[in-house]
Design a protein around this nucleic acid. Structure first.
Length: 588
RNA sequence: GGUGUUGUAGCUUAGUUGGUCUAAAGCGCCUGCCUGUCGAGCAGGAGAUCGUGGGUUCGAAUCCCACCAGCACCGCCA
């Protein structure tokens, strides 16, 4: 054994014991006659003390060690004469009697401390050093606990964890696949799973009843702060359940995780129709930490000779309460510029300021009398001191733009508090999504999603417009405006599944080729079933009030999908290419 | 594919309208002093062709162009 205790273990009651510790030199302080070394491991920091009067040779040796050297020290635990209240072990120190250097270290490229001076670039290149830092270790530890609590909760609820294959078959639907060439089957490729979707459905057919897996998923799409090419899902499927059973089960899991990991008792999990979410917040993942619901103004704002409104499909606005005094004209112009940026792409922004002195100031005063604007105010329930922000245009676009503005205002006004958590179930997503460019329907969730029972007759013999209006038994869990997870009740009937594939533009042959195994399975007594998957990385980030999932992944990839530490992806040898029967044709 | 933004000692930054910039500071590093430090202190020192390549200019860290890299976003992500 290299040690008797770890570096966070010893307390005043251990005084007098002979102990051996091992760890890294966090920092050393050479005071001349005395030298102190802070010895660090995952569990904490313990001070080693050396004294010239007690042992010249040992103290001289201690003076020579540098940061991040690996030491083993034996000595007696003793009470400190001057204590450090900021540290759990701050009442004691080790009076060292023997010191072994287990390994020396180069000076690290950035200092291993909580507030490191290293930028993202260098931290990623030396991720193994970044991972020595306490805040990052805490994140990884948090992730571990979340995974453990998830397993505990689901296992207690009769779910069993089953591993599904990573080398599977490519399908054209959905995200781009990562593919893996097969050496033995020249010219053929496996795909890495975007999710274990079909396998978990097959496990239901097999009678496992409740399945879960904490599993890597792979999608070859562009990255974001909250998107990695490989990410982890808490993937689940249940047999003999309705939507209600699934929502309750995973509401329970979510409560359990908040309770055990954060000590937070979540209040209610409100539910909202997808249509309402889009109408009231312009988003299928509204942040409910603050209000600012949309109000539509077509009936009040049209017919007043303001051409932009008269021509608009939708005129819609939000009310920011009590900010008239703190928002100057300059701020308002800034907001206008903000929504006009290419990323938002709005034509402009109309505002109505209800000043605290009772006067009304707006950008459209020429077209609307104060009486008109008072009608707007009562629509919003606006009072003196409030400002209305109004946008207009094509319905879908303007809702999206106003949603962005709402979130930005929430940020600027400090309404999106990182220690507040507002979960929301968004229900009844559309079954299909029409794509203008390819002129076909795509499954909004995935091709196995069941339409709502009431919509099945319409699905079987409806026209094009009817198809657009079909609702699915599909649901998302949203927390603080972040999509934590989603799922659906699945189709378990071969006929209905065939019809769905047909709507999605699959020929019977193509459907058979791609998903014949699943439809075949449905002919052998498939139970009604449904499931859900949570994004584990996002859940970690949201629970910690953070936006980026990268710090909850031990070895993440950068914006370009590169791992800068191991320098992947990389070219491979011609020999390897030959074995795989692959020739490169790289376009410049 | 597109937009924005950043790139200056090991690290984090400052650097005005181009001119004592022969590039500054803090941290880190090295040396010395120092017996109760814990962000130790004090004194001294080393360390940068300013992302790369062009261009403008008498003169470029600074202006222009291209490229490279990081970050954020749009498209994309059933």
């Amino acid at each position: 054994m290299y040690r008797t205790h770890h570096c966070g273990a010893l307390r005043l009651e251990d005084a007098g014991k002979e102990v051996t510790l091992a760890g890294w030199v966090d920092i050393s302080r050479n005071l001349g006659g005395m030298t102190f070394i802070d010895l660090r491991d995952r569990f904490g920091i313990t001070q080693l003390a050396f004294n010239m009067e007690e042992n010249v040779e040992l103290c001289t040796q201690a003076r020579k060690v540098g940061r991040e050297w690996v030491l083993q020290a034996t000595g007696i635990v003793r009470e400190r004469s001057s204590k450090n209240a900021n540290r759990a072990t701050g009442e004691i120190e080790i009076s060292v009697t023997s010191l072994q250097v287990l390994n020396s270290s180069k000076v690290p490229p950035f200092t291993i401390q909580d507030d490191t001076d290293g930028g993202d670039d260098i931290r990623m290149k030396y991720r193994y050093l970044d991972l020595r830092r306490n805040p990052v270790q805490q994140n990884i530890l948090f992730r571990h606990k979340l995974a453990m609590e998830t397993r505990k909760y689901l296992s207690d609820a009769e779910f069993i964890e089953v591993e599904t294959p990573v080398l599977i078959k490519s399908t054209p639907e959905g995200a781009r696949d990562f593919v893996v060439p097969s050496r033995i089957n020249a010219g053929q490729f496996y795909a890495l799973p975007q999710s274990p979707q079909t396998f978990k459905q097959l496990l239901m057919v097999s009678g496992f009843d409740r399945y879960f897996q904490i599993v890597k998923c792979f999608r070859d799409e562009d990255l974001r702060a909250d998107r990695q090419p490989e990410f982890t899902q808490i993937d689940c499927e249940m047999s003999f359940v309705h939507q209600e059973d699934i929502l309750n089960t995973f509401e329970g899991l979510t409560r359990h995780l908040f309770q055990t990991l954060k000590g937070i008792e979540l209040l209610d999990f409100p539910r909202m129709q997808y249509d309402d979410a889009v109408r009231l917040y312009g988003s299928d993942k509204p942040d409910l930490r603050f209000g600012m619901e949309f109000k539509e103004l077509n009936h009040l704002a049209k017919g007043k000779d303001f051409a932009i409104f008269d021509q608009a499909e939708l005129i819609v606005g939000i009310c920011a309460q009590g900010i008239a005094d703190q928002f100057s004209n300059k701020d308002l112009n800034e907001m206008t510029d903000w929504v006009k940026r290419p990323q938002i792409g709005a034509g402009g922004l109309v505002y109505v300021r209800f000043n605290t002195d009772g006067s009304i100031k707006s950008t459209i005063g020429k077209f609307f009398s104060d009486e008109d604007l008072q009608l707007w105010a009562s629509e919003f329930g606006a009072k003196a001191g409030d400002i209305l922000f109004i946008m207009s245009g094509e319905t879908d676009k303007v809702r999206k733009q106003l949603s962005e503005l709402r979130l930005e205002l929430g940020n600027r006004l400090g309404l999106r508090k990182s220690d507040e958590f507002k979960p929301l179930w968004v229900l009844d997503f559309p079954l299909l999504e029409w794509d203008e460019t390819t002129e076909r329907f795509y499954a909004m969730h995935h091709p196995f999603t069941s339409p709502k029972k009431a919509d099945i007759p319409r699905m079987l013999n409806g026209d094009h417009e009817t198809m657009k209006s079909l609702r699915a038994d599909a649901y998302d869990l949203v927390i603080n405006g972040v999509e934590i997870g989603g799922g659906s009740i699945r189709i378990h009937d071969r006929e209905l599944q065939s019809k769905n594939f047909k709507l999605l533009g699959f020929t019977p042959e193509k459907a058979e080729d791609q998903f014949g195994f699943l439809m075949g399975a449905f002919e052998y007594g498939a139970p009604p079933h449904g499931g859900i998957a949570f994004g584990l990385d996002r859940l970690c980030a949201v629970l910690n009030g953070q936006n980026s999932i990268r710090d909850f992944i031990a070895f993440p990839k950068n914006n370009m999908g590169r791992d800068t530490m191991i320098d992947a992806p990389s070219a491979i040898d011609d020999v390897q290419l030959n074995e795989l029967s692959i020739q490169l044709d790289i376009k410049k």
